[in-house]
Design a protein around this nucleic acid. Structure first.
Lengths: 232, 232
DNA sequence: CGAAAGGTTGAGTTCCGTCAAGTGTGGTGG
DNA sequence: CCACCACACTTGACGGAACTCAACCTTTCG
């Protein structure tokens, strides 16, 4: 159990952008009373499918994946969670998906029933979560769109573009040099492909001059236009 | 323009289950002032990708699909909307997906900016939408899971089970005789497959004795267990 | 240094998409 | 009533894209 200390909202890096930013000081103090920090190391899980649904959380730093697993053990990534993101299935008695840390991550964890009570008493929080939820829904649909592309080329190209957009912090622009945040296996899990196919397609993208690789993870996009065309 | 009359909430079939059910009479009357009914015939669109985002709506009867289109014209179905469901991308300036009627549908349409104002002033509505949004997100992830299965067999089997669950009105149980609500093309669009593959897989499921078909749309599930195993 | 995990590459095979032809079926109009 | 058409669906043959299996390379970490 690696939880600890009271919450230090004052120094929280996501205090302006997370759902709790909608609360005033008094309300936030109240919320902080029922929350606690938790550190997940890379690969550790917050909740697993089948668990009783007791917690929800705001991600403070790091990154999480939300996944489900086929019987044969293949992991399917349903969503990535970035700092200020909210995780947890509100209003549901059971947990349906695994939530696992991609990198060492810091969370603000709450009891789900208590959090729901607070939501009901605090309209601003409900509204903030509604906005976040609308974004999550849009992201999920974007991912469905990506994973549903016919060819593996289009999916890989689209994923690279998505990472490039996420890597640049300005929302409309996209970085042209960045590191892939996932292993080949995780990318495969997002796109419904295999590790080998990801590896081969990245090789092809490079030999076609659309990207340049530096080591296993480093990517430089050389031809945004052709990449966009491929991914359409 | 097939809009009309004031809203008749009193006789609305989804008045107990839609988001607006959370409002008291006075509030609902206020909401009904800014809404109007609209009938969409099969195939007609409510909003198209690229439009300015001006409307949102509650589905009263019928069924909708939320789709995106590849450049080559392939339609990808991102979500199905059932009565009492809410459609519209709140808090977003532009529309990203098409919303099209699968069958003749009756909607309660609102101006999105006005609706957002009302949400901000009515916590119960925000909370109701948050619950609905959480459900939508779960559905979206379930569909990602389904469409991400390795084999076409698993996807088709899973889709049939999903329809069987939707056809029985009790949420935990699943019907064993029902009609497919979609054309082969639409099923293909949901699963990222082709019409021909859907057709063939249905044929195989029948010849393997898992289902029995009556005409193009009628399905009877003969072997729930093997179907579930296939779809896992 | 050795082991483990992540990544690449190759050869063979299978599954699904493509193209094409053919079978209902419901609706419209002569 | 039948002829015709549009649309949804089925079926077959074929080729190619992605999966599987397997070997090997690279980096990291104990």
């Amino acid at each position: 159990m690696n939880s600890n200390s009271n919450l230090a909202c004052d120094t929280c890096p996501v205090r302006e952008s997370a759902a709790c930013a909608s609360l005033n000081d008094e309300e936030r103090i109240k919320l902080s009373k029922i929350g606690r920090h938790k550190i997940l190391k890379k690969g550790e899980t917050l909740t697993a499918a089948g668990d009783e649904n007791t917690v929800c959380a705001t991600l403070v730093s790091g990154a999480l994946k939300i996944t489900s697993n086929d019987r044969d053990g293949t992991e399917r990534i349903l969503s990535l969670v970035h700092p200020a993101g909210f995780v947890g299935e509100l209003f549901s008695p059971a947990v349906h998906h695994d939530v696992v840390a991609l990198t060492e991550s810091k969370l603000c964890v709450f009891s789900r029933p208590q959090y729901e009570e607070i939501i009901e008493g605090h309209p601003a929080l409900a509204l903030a979560l509604l906005r976040r939820s609308a974004d999550d829904l849009f992201d999920a649909r974007s991912m469905m769109d990506l994973a549903g592309k016919r060819s593996a080329d289009a999916r890989v190209a689209g994923l690279i573009q998505a990472f490039a957009r996420a890597a640049s912090h300005s929302p409309c622009h996209s970085a042209d040099t960045f590191d892939l945040p996932l292993t080949r296996g995780e990318m495969a899990g997002m796109l419904g492909l295999t590790i080998e196919t990801i590896s081969r397609k990245l090789g092809l993208l490079e030999s076609d001059g659309l990207i340049k690789r530096q080591g296993a993870r480093g990517i430089r996009i050389s031809d945004h236009a052709r990449l966009a065309e491929l991914s359409d």
